[in-house]
Nucleic acid binder design. Structure first.
Lengths: 224, 224
DNA sequence: CGCGAATCGGAGGTAGCATCTCCGGTTAGC
DNA sequence: GCTAACCGGAGATGCTACCTCCGATTCGCG
């Protein structure tokens, strides 16, 4: 039993190979961020300026590549959750967390696929859930005890709300990639215990033409 | 120039053919309701107890079949919208409309694909939008004037909220197909101008195991 | 410098899936 | 009974994504 993370490496990669491995990872980060996990490995290879074969020698398959990138993204998400949970005002913490997560997933589709367990291995998904739960649960309870968060809310609702915001984001992004903020604030107004008036929405509603175009551009509407 | 809708029908279908046409339509209604518009015509043919060839002789392609079913579904949606718009209490009308639409789309995925313009011909989608707009716009304005609906809400937000509820519905349906109601009420609480406390949520949050299973069963998470 | 092992490129093999066609066999109905 | 209309469903077609293969190239040790 070895305690070093990289045990029994028979031989380090040749220098060019190692450099290409880095390039592949970088390209994967970028391409996955834009297109999500259903981007092709061919795309990633192109983006890295390499052939697909090179990618496949370094990573046995697509899942392995995603897995190799998992740790760093996972750490980013966990970091946000921890920071949010440490806020004295738990409601502010929750608001901040939902905002940051929405922003991340709006900017990086791969991260979103990760958060929402799309095309992530079952093990990884479970790992993420198990790590997040003990961080989120107390924060939610505290926000409720402090009287700011509605008491019928539950921590498991968080991913579902993220999913809802993600869809709104996808749908409205073509006209302005920041339009998701409107729907985030709407959701937050749903979560608070009581309020005298609406929180001002940070973005205007889509106008007629934009809406029409959004329906066309929307990837999920593939024609029938 | 003829004013009859079915002009120049060269000859009525043979009796067995006409009966099969009905069977196909019925099967399509059922299968589309369960699986949405990406159900295969092969599935529909099976369900109708016929071969695919028969379906394709009657309808030149899948889009034509969907189109043939469009009118009746379209009428149902429009009917709901009109009824909602006629309510004296416009807020109640809006709440009722969002509820009914959500219920429809939860029970019939085809209807949802129709509402959200997925795989519906551009002409049809435009037709639906143009008909709905003059019904929804005044209702929204009235609800705002009556002081119940937040003033920064817009009628174009309605389809987006439907989309959000649809996703929540998809995600949570495996454990209980009525779970969407929880998220509908959340959304409604976001829309009202002011409230002293939260509207009680009609469904409990998903429990731990259900949540885990939901992530697995979810069609959008196709594995990586 | 030279040589063998490691690496690269990217054209295609393979697989899966959905739409739609084709034609030998069947049936309605005059 | 006879013919035009109809049926069935195997498979042609088209597409897309994952992955493999092998000749050409490059690294880097001796």
């Amino acid at each position: 039993m070895s305690f070093t993370p990289s045990a029994a490496v028979p031989r380090p990669l040749r220098r060019d190979a190692e450099q290409n491995r880095q390039r592949i990872m970088a390209a994967a980060r970028e391409v996955f961020a834009q297109r999500g996990f259903d981007a092709t490995l061919d795309e990633i290879a192109d983006n890295a300026g390499l052939g697909v074969g090179t990618v496949y020698r370094r990573f046995p398959n697509k899942a392995a590549l995603i897995d190799a990138l998992f740790e760093e993204s996972f750490a980013r998400i966990l970091e946000l959750a921890r920071a949010a949970a440490e806020q004295p005002d738990a409601w502010q913490g929750l608001v901040g967390l939902l905002s940051s997560l929405s922003e991340l997933q709006a900017a990086d589709r791969g991260l979103r696929d990760l958060m929402l367990s799309q095309r992530v291995s079952e093990t990884r998904a479970a790992q993420l859930r198990d790590t997040m739960k003990p961080v989120l649960d107390p924060m939610v309870r505290r926000a409720q005890e402090q009287g700011a968060l509605r008491c019928d809310f539950a921590a498991v609702d968080i991913p579902i709300l993220q999913l809802m915001i993600a869809v709104a984001c996808d749908f409205t992004r073509s006209s302005d990639p920041e339009n998701w903020q409107r729907y985030l604030v709407l959701v937050l107004d749903a979560l608070c215990q009581r309020r005298d008036g609406p929180t001002p929405l940070p973005r205007p509603a889509l106008d007629e033409d934009t809406m029409e175009q959004a329906m066309r551009d929307w990837p999920a509407a593939k024609r029938g």
